[in-house]
Design a protein around this nucleic acid. Structure first.
Length: 476
DNA sequence: TGAAATGTTGGGGCG
DNA sequence: ACGCCCCAACATTTC
């Protein structure tokens, strides 16, 4: 009798450790791990995260080959692709990890229709700490406010400990596969990805190392350091979590262990765990409201008179707004595929409130340029900033880009890294170059309107404009 | 996980 | 010594 074959359909769970679907499939017999490039996905990965996907897949190809089951790459609608692959390999089962986005869920539903007496379909959970439908309010509904949601998570049964990866699995030889290079996930022609390589390598090994470095060295100072874009105070785990190179359960367990071993890390660890719960909250919201990436959660915002201004949008995208902290953030994003979280909030507030441009424009740009792009996080966070989301920042909470710059980048070190034309300005004064005297501008080699733009919009004016737009839409 | 406007308090200068 | 004003510094409210 031949050994049963199981298809392991990989999506945003591109790892070997803590992978219940992989373990189940491997225990059943031989496995065919497959990653499908899906042209029907309405939220196909953008440029930067395609680049990241390339790095991650090439690592995964090597790791899976090492343990004995080569990764198969295919292109097409997964429903059809998996049926063809099952016929080719004689597979009698399909295993995969659960997704929470509308497209992923719709696909899963179709897959379940393949189940029958001769074909098993198994869906596993490993991409969240808490399954969305298990975290309920007292009245049995989903949460709309973060704090009680987080409380309910802490009160829920603890996330299970991460599972070990397999040492050896049995694969199936000679299954045809696309070539990763042919997918052209890396930029062709002009190589814009040079800065993206400044990332730690996007391998499962690098993910582990990054996690250990964070919990051992950075977590104790996380509470304060995480808000300083000029310091390396964040976990830098987002690209790994976005693709499932790390599971949140690995991160959760590592943080708890470090907190246990090092009392000095407890306070920082608490804050970090709560950040992980913001990710859970975003998935919770997306699961309950599949339209989250497209439509404002609060209906009143549909009537808001957003402006149309291609020039302004482009200036924001390119980091040419004339507000140094905003420009530094947007350039960091463009150059490296990543932006510090504090600065994400600042640039987002600027787009939505100072420029009064639709949050969906910002969401789309981040989706295309972030190497760590995550549908749930991206949609929930943009709605949060715009004020139309769940537990959102009230619309009148408008960041002042100068004050934010002075508060979180007091010496201007972060701005100087990404906006070198302002290098000559000493100290925090560089956050508002238009306030400098003609002499000090000349001295620092800055010519406003020439080698650095004048402010795209006056903040005080823009603030009033946003507030009155908000009042108007609230009326209707 | 704001900022600006407005209100209150208290110390010090000064007639 | 006393009242008055000024204005930081802080608190509260409003957007």
């Amino acid at each position: 009798m031949s050994i049963p074959v199981t298809l392991l359909w990989l999506r945003n769970d591109l790892r070997l450790i803590d992978h219940p679907a992989l373990l189940w499939a491997a225990a059943r017999g031989r496995i065919v791990p497959v990653y499908i490039r899906d042209p029907t996905d309405p939220w196909k990965r953008g440029g930067a995260s395609q680049w990241a996907l390339h790095q991650i897949l090439s690592d995964l190809i090597a790791r899976l080959a090492q343990v004995g089951a080569p990764l198969v790459l295919r292109t097409g609608d997964p429903f059809g692709v998996l049926q063809v692959l099952a016929a080719e390999t004689g597979a009698t089962a399909l295993a995969f990890s659960r997704a929470y986005d509308p497209h992923g869920r719709a696909q899963e539903k179709k897959m379940e229709s393949l189940a029958g007496p001769n074909f098993a379909v198994r869906c596993f959970s490993s991409s969240l700490l808490f399954e969305p439908e298990t975290i309920r309010t007292k009245s049995g509904g989903p949460f709309r406010v973060y704090t009680p949601f987080a409380k309910a998570c802490f009160a829920a049964p603890s996330p299970v400990l991460p599972l070990a990866g397999p040492r050896k699995v049995q694969g199936v030889e000679a299954v045809s596969s696309d070539k990763l290079a042919d997918w052209a996930l890396e930029p062709q022609g002009p190589d814009w990805a040079a800065g993206l390589r400044s990332f730690s390598r996007l391998t499962e090994e690098a993910a582990r190392a990054t996690l250990l470095r964070f919990v051992d060295e950075r977590m104790a100072a996380y509470r304060d350091a995480r808000d300083s874009p000029d310091r390396a105070g964040t976990s830098e785990l987002s690209p790994f979590l976005a693709f499932g190179v790390l599971s949140p359960r690995q991160v959760w367990a590592a943080a708890l262990l470090a907190m246990e071993q090092n009392p000095a890390a407890r306070a920082g660890g608490e804050v970090f765990l709560k950040e992980l719960l913001w990710r859970e909250f975003a998935y919770h919201l997306l699961f309950e409201t599949p339209s989250l990436p497209e439509k404002p959660l609060q209906k009143a915002f549909a009537a808001l008179p957003w402006r149309k201004d291609k020039e302004a949008l482009r200036a924001w995208q390119r980091g040419q707004t004339g507000y140094p902290i905003v420009d530094a953030g947007m350039r960091q994003l463009w150059q490296t595929g990543w932006m510090h979280n504090r600065v994400r909030m600042i640039v987002a507030s600027f787009l939505v409130k100072d420029l009064l441009l639709p949050w969906q424009e910002g969401e789309a740009w981040f989706w295309d340029t972030l190497a760590d792009a995550d549908l749930a996080n991206n949609a929930a966070s943009w709605q949060w900033v715009a004020g139309c989301g769940a537990d959102a920042a009230p619309f009148f909470r408008i960041f002042n880009p100068v004050l934010q710059g002075k508060k979180f980048d007091p010496d201007g070190a972060y701005v100087r890294t990404y906006v070198p034309e302002l290098k000559g300005i000493k100290g925090g004064a560089l956050h508002a170059p238009w306030l400098l005297s003609a002499e000090s501008l000349a001295e620092s080699g800055v010519i406003l309107g020439k080698n650095y733009p004048k402010p795209l919009v006056d903040h005080a004016f823009a603030r009033d404009r946003a507030l009155s737009a908000f009042r108007e839409s609230k009326k209707s």
